[in-house]
């Protein structure tokens, strides 16, 4: 119990529960299976990238280029499937392959030049995105193939609401779950996952990790290619959700994703963060955004409220940590 109260995740979970109660009290439509599944579907895009960001943050890095990676992967994928045909497997393969390559470029730059990861990724964000705009001319792609459209509407199971409209667990959510499970397995049960926490936990001086026999370059290659992988998947998922490919529709969402992950307890200093926390962070922001409309809060207030929730949650957790760190001395009774 004591350990549970020390965990950041507990606080985010409580915030999610509290928010759910408040929103439901004001609008009972919130706590329905249909709305729940809709939220799951619509936040799977950010959720997938959040998993990649989590892995980067654990390793002690910060990446903001992932939105550009997702955009490039998505755009090239869309060009190929509209111009030549293909199928959903090909679509994912193209986007993921591009994600892996661009991730590798990030990893190489970070390792060989030993530049702070955030600086590298600011640079690559602009290069990747800039080149895409140069070569695409910023053209939007509106008309994606029918099979692409159909795949987006696939449901794992289907229910019907009171108006007889079908809803259910979207295939897109299933893809997100797949990414979650993959990351969870890697983080919990592999030596690679352990190495990741170790590299992130030793801060700026990677000496301790090296002395433990960890190959830092290999860890970094994994981290940034995994980020690239999730970005590629997310790119396709976003196209599935929106059915329009616009080069400027993903870039700009970096901070939303990073905020969700940090909200979930990952540390920008590295070494800390869990899948559960990240999911809770994503849910908290999604429910918040969803709930504000359902609670009929005027849109002018959205940014203010979301900012306040992030600040409250992060500072509550920091306060808890500080309380623990304060040296306590067993003072002799008089």
């Amino acid at each position: 119990m004591r350990r549970l109260m020390q965990r950041h995740e507990t606080y985010v979970f409580l915030a999610v529960v509290a928010l759910t109660i408040v929103v439901t009290a004001l609008n009972p439509n919130f706590l329905t299976m249909e709305n729940f599944l809709d939220i799951l579907k619509s936040c799977s895009f950010l959720g997938i990238m959040a998993i990649g960001v989590l892995v980067v943050l654990i390793s002690g890095g910060v990446d903001i280029s992932f939105t550009a990676v997702a955009t490039v992967g998505q755009y090239v994928m869309a060009v190929v499937i509209t111009r030549y045909t293909g199928n959903i497997a090909l679509a994912f393969t193209i986007a993921i392959a591009i994600g892996l390559v661009l991730g590798l470029i990030n990893a190489a730059l970070i390792y060989f030049f030993n530049i702070p990861t955030i600086i590298v990724s600011i640079g690559t964000l602009n290069v990747f995105y800039g080149l895409l705009i140069v070569f695409s001319g910023g053209k939007w792609i509106y008309t994606l193939p029918d099979w692409f459209h159909k795949f987006a509407e696939t449901r794992v199971f289907t229910l019907f609401n009171s108006n007889g409209i079908p809803y259910g667990l979207s295939i897109v959510t299933l893809i997100w779950i797949f990414v979650i499970v993959l990351a969870a397995l890697i983080l919990r049960y592999t030596v690679l996952g352990r190495s990741l926490y170790a590299v992130g936990g030793c801060g700026f001086d990677k000496g301790p990790a090296e002395r433990a026999g960890i190959n830092i370059f290999r860890v970094q290659v994994f981290v940034y290619t995994f980020m690239g992988f999730t970005a590629g998947v997310a790119g396709v998922v976003q196209a599935l959700l929106v059915q329009t490919v616009a080069p400027n529709s993903i870039v700009g969402k970096e901070l939303n994703v990073i905020a969700a992950v940090v909200l979930g307890g990952a540390s920008l200093a590295g070494g800390a963060g869990t899948i559960v926390g990240t999911l809770l962070g994503v849910f908290l922001l999604a429910i918040l955004s969803n709930g504000l409309t359902l609670m009929r809060v005027p849109s002018y207030w959205y940014d203010v409220v979301i900012g306040m929730v992030i600040l409250t949650s992060v500072s509550a957790s920091a306060l808890q940590q500080r309380r623990e760190q304060q040296r306590a001395i067993a003072v002799e009774e008089a």
Binding site: Y197, A198, G200, G201, C202, P208, A209, R211
Partner: peptide, 10 residues
């Protein structure tokens, strides 16, 4: 070593 080379987050 003096810094112990431990991983405090683990």
């Amino acid at each position: 070593y003096q810094d112990l080379s431990l991983f405090p987050n683990m």
